[in-house]
Design a binder for these strands. Sequence first.
DNA 1: CCTCGCAATATTGCATTCAAAAGTCAATAA
DNA 2: TTATTGACTTTTGAATGCAATATTGCGAGG
Lengths: 231, 231
Amino acid sequence: MDLAPLVAARKSRPEARRADLHGSLLEQLRDLIVEGQLAAGSRVAERVLCERFGVSRTPLREALKVLAAEGLIELLPNRGARVARLTAADIAQTLKVIGTLEALAGETACERITESEIAEIRALHLEMLAHHARRDRLAYFKANQAIHQALVAASGNAVLAQTYAGLSGRIRRARYAANLDLRRWDEAVAEHELILQALAARDGARLAKLLRSHLDNKSYALAAQSPEALA
Amino acid sequence: MDLAPLVAARKSRPEARRADLHGSLLEQLRDLIVEGQLAAGSRVAERVLCERFGVSRTPLREALKVLAAEGLIELLPNRGARVARLTAADIAQTLKVIGTLEALAGETACERITESEIAEIRALHLEMLAHHARRDRLAYFKANQAIHQALVAASGNAVLAQTYAGLSGRIRRARYAANLDLRRWDEAVAEHELILQALAARDGARLAKLLRSHLDNKSYALAAQSPEALA
DNA sequence: CCTCGCAATATTGCATTCAAAAGTCAATAA
DNA sequence: TTATTGACTTTTGAATGCAATATTGCGAGG
C-alpha cells in the first residue's frame, strides 16, 4: 500500500504538528460514527483511520480508547475496534435513562429558567413546527435535538447536561436513522406543544411527567420499527 | 534521575509484556484517585506514574485520556494532568442526578426483582447495620455502596447501571473522605430501613421517593460539612 | 468438496525516540 | 532590589520501531 501522498500531506504542514489533535480527532471520529459512515458492527482498522486523518497511530489510539469508554465503539483485545452495535434493548434502556434525566432537567429548569430562555426555546419550537409542516425530517430532527438540549441546559446542572449529552450521543445514530412514521411524528409534535406549555407555566411536575412519557413514546415507536434500521 | 532499576524490573518479566495493561492501569489509577493518594488539584506528571506502574508513557497516556473523559482528572493542553477538584456544586449536582437514577432503578427493580435478590439486599442491609452498631465507618461505607449498587443492578437496565457507576465513582472520593456526623448517620440508617421495606413490598413509587430524598439528604449533609474535606 | 493445520501476512500493544511547548533560573539592566 | 530576558531543563504531544497476537491463504487429508 502506498502511503507516500499521505505522509507528504502530513509533512507539508509541519507548523500544525502540535495542533489539538486529540480533541479534533475525537470530534471527527464521533461524527463518522454518528453519521453512520462507519457501519455499526463493522471492524475498524487503525491504519485506515490514520490514513484518513493523516495522523499516526498514537493519538488515534488514544481517541479510540476514549470512544470505547463512552460506549460508541468496542475494543476487542488484540483484535482492534468495532463500532458498537445497538440492540433494541440498548436503545430502550438508554431512552428510559434519558427520559428520567430530562424529567429532572425539566423540573429543575422550571425553578430557575429565565423568560428569555423560555422565549428562545419557544422560537426553536416554532422553527421545529415549520420543519414539520414542510416534512423536512433532517431539519426537524436538529431543531428537536436543540430544544431538548436547551431544556437540559436550562436546568443549570452541568453534570446532568454532560451525562445527558453522552447518552444522547450514543443513540443519536439510531434516532437519526429511524424514520418516524407520520402518525407518530404528528403525535410527537403535539407532545412538544404540551411540553412548551408546561415549561411556560413553570409547572415542573407536569413537565417532568410529559417529558418522561414523551421519551417513553419515542421508545415504543422505535421498538415497533424494523430492527435493522437500528444496526 | 536513575531509571535503571525500574527499567530492569520491567524487562525482568518479559513474559508479562502483553498483559491487559490498559484495563489494569485504569483501575489502579482510579484507585489512586479515589483513595485520595493523588491529592485533588495536584498536578500529576506522567513520568512518576510511569515509574510507579513500571509502564511506558504510551499506555499511561491512553489511560489518562480515558480518566479525563470520565471527569476524574483534567487535562491541561501541553501542561499535563491534574486531579479534578470537586466543588460543592459539582457534588450537589452529581448527587441530584444519582438520586434520580436511583429512583428510576428502584421503580424498575420493583417490577422485576426476584425474591432471592431481595434476600441478598436484605443480607447486605443487615451487615450494614452491624457495621453501624460498631461505628465502623469504612465497612459501613462499603456495605452501603454495595446495597445501592445491588439495587441499581436489580433494575436490569445496563445503561442505567453503567451511568450510575460512572457518576458514583466520580464523587466516591468526596463521599469517602466525608465523615458523617453521628446524627446524620443514624438518620441514614433509618432511611435505609424504609428503603428496604418499600423494596420488599415492591412499592416502586414509594421506593423512588425514598431514594430521591435519601440522596437529597446526603447532599444537604455534605453541603453542611467543611468544604475543605471535599478538596 | 469440505475441513483441518500451518506458514505467511497483517494488525495490535507497548516501548522508544524526536520535536515543540512550558518551566527554571541566573545574569543583566533599570 | 526587583523586573526581564534568554539559555537550559523538564515535560508533553506525536511518530516510529519492535515484539506478540490474530488473520489469511494454501495445501494435505478425509
